[in-house]
Design a protein around this nucleic acid. Structure first.
Lengths: 161, 161
DNA sequence: TCCCGGTGTTTGGCTCATCAAACGTTGGTT
DNA sequence: AACCAACGTTTGATGAGCCAAACACCGGGA
């Protein structure tokens, strides 16, 4: 009956894959290189685990390593990282700036979902957010009206499910 | 450095757990009962797998079974199901009605994320959606303005990342 | 030169969630 | 009473990801 739910497990990239690729990207941005031990420290897991995981990601053609075991992202890896970064930013902004959730919650929710959001949804969400937070007077009026609506609601029912 | 990302794996409930509980709920709603084989068919997995998984969920006090092996949700299980249903509905409506994504994409994205969204985010999202889709004139104007904004954007750049 | 610290790899083990297949139990038919 | 079909359970296996610990390499002091 239900077929959609199974796609979750096979979802490419997995949460782990996503964060390994993101780690390499971030480390190269920051330090100019990314070795296994750097990835391990960044993700707070062991070198052994990183070694195994990155070997698989190498086979899948997401990452490469040079003669000195320094990791690089392939074009495919870069593409995935770009798409995840876009979704993370959009999700975080949505949660924080539109829904007014605390920074930490916005961050955590965005991190949990960033790799699962479809490309289409990522695009549409960005468009939507762009308009919502724009200087457009309608958008501004909307934000103010929502603000009032929300406060009224929270006063009426401080904790309704 | 990064500590948030690890919460994903330990996230309670897991995707699998969520769908087992949802299956029991749905089947009882529809048929009045839920046996192992019903859950298996509904989730499209084997009876063996269901047997093992539900044994664990019984230990975690999410489900119970009566003398005839008919499953029921405990109060804790019910609570989780309610929270997931709420998030699924909110997410689906957000994707479909606000972002105007195709039904199938909205459904699939909602299913992937429903169990990961925090309660706070679920609540705020529902509030936001309620206002956006309400009869409030400001909300109506906003929807129209966004519609125009979106179409303008899609004409300008039919496929920009 | 010898050794040690930092790094990568390998191995054995663990949990979760799945499968296939064998096995057990039970209730209804004949 | 005998049997079969439906159902639950158990077992051995798989694949992802993780850990700890042992092993392997390599380069820079002393």
């Amino acid at each position: 009956m239900n077929e959609v739910w199974k796609k979750f497990e096979q979802h490419e990239p997995s949460h782990s894959t996503a964060h390994h690729l993101m780690a390499i990207h971030t480390l190269i941005e920051k330090n100019g290189y990314a070795r296994g031990v750097d990835v391990a420290k960044h993700l707070n897991i062991t070198r052994g685990s990183v070694s195994l995981t990155l070997a698989k990601l190498k086979e899948k053609n997401y990452v490469e390593e040079d003669a000195n075991k320094f990791y690089r992202l392939t074009a495919r890896g870069e593409q995935i990282v770009r798409s995840i970064i876009q979704k993370r930013l959009v999700l975080r902004a949505f949660f924080r700036d539109l829904l007014q959730l605390p920074e930490a919650v916005a961050e955590s929710d965005a991190c949990k979902m960033e790799h699962l959001l479809s490309d289409e949804a990522g695009r549409e969400m960005q468009l939507f957010l762009e308009f919502c937070l724009s200087e457009d007077p309608t958008a501004g009026a909307f934000r103010q009206a929502y603000q009032r609506f929300r406060e009224r609601r929270l006063q009426e029912a401080p904790s309704a499910s």
